[in-house]
């Protein structure tokens, strides 16, 4: 037991208590269930308390130094503490999971997986060129229609737009349609964020408008 024989007097580091102390090392806390000595409590309160405190502190330090894993770094020796075990009330309620949007509910019902998370992600394989191209964004495949070198003039659409067939620019139309779609989506997103669209069981789950309205863009 004794390693160094040089020092004659050795200070005791162990404390024996009738009831062993309980510890919550996560919060550096010791619970001493031994009653305070009633005689010394009445006669000399401070000594009674400080004796109990010293013993408790010694046992707590012993417990920390023996049961936790100590790691010495250049900054000093650190004791890795376990998680606290004493249940204490929270300050705020547990965070609620985000309510699904109207689209998310619809997609779940129909079994549609999100664009970003489905197997291919953002990229799609273009058969014609044999390369992978993004679905949207820079050089996105959703702009393929806009970049055609030859565009058919649809008389119906032109008349709907209220323009002369001569004046009507069918090239701009497809771009306008896409921009309108984006705007519509943004509107719906805003609505969802405001909490109007996301209420479960409010009305039908069908997306309103039935998709893209054609020929609405130009005036």
């Amino acid at each position: 037991m004794s390693k160094d024989t040089g020092k004659p007097e050795r200070l005791p580091v162990t404390v024996s208590k009738p009831i062993p102390l309980a510890f919550d090392l996560g919060e550096l806390t010791a619970f001493d269930n031994n009653p305070l000595d009633p005689a010394s409590y009445i006669s000399s309160l401070e000594t009674c308390l400080s004796t109990a405190a010293r013993d408790g502190a010694q046992l707590l330090i012993n417990q920390i130094l023996t049961t936790t894993s100590l790691k010495s770094t250049s900054d000093g020796v650190f004791a890795e503490l376990p998680d606290p075990i004493t249940p204490l009330p929270r300050e705020k309620p547990l965070p609620k999971p985000k309510e699904p949007t109207k689209w998310e509910l619809f997609a779940k019902k129909k079994g549609i997986s999100s664009l970003r998370t489905n197997s291919t992600g953002k990229m799609v394989y273009d058969e014609a060129t044999g390369t992978w191209v993004p679905k949207w964004g820079y050089k996105g495949s959703n702009k393929a229609e806009e970049n055609q070198w030859l565009v058919e003039v649809d008389d119906k659409k032109a008349s709907k737009a209220g323009k002369d067939v001569e004046e009507f620019n069918p090239r701009k139309l497809s771009r306008q349609e896409r921009v309108d779609r984006i705007k519509k989506n943004e509107r719906q997103m805003k609505k969802n964020a405001a909490g109007k669209g996301s209420a479960v069981g409010s009305g039908s789950l069908k997306p309103r408008g039935g998709g893209v309205k054609k020929g609405k863009g130009r005036k």
Binding site: L36, L49, G56, D75
Partner: peptide, 17 residues
């Protein structure tokens, strides 16, 4: 984790029997 050097003080709460 806690620095062993940082264990500087103890607060005692005692109640009589």
């Amino acid at each position: 984790r806690v620095d062993v050097e940082g264990l500087q003080y103890i607060i005692q709460f005692s109640t009589p029997e």
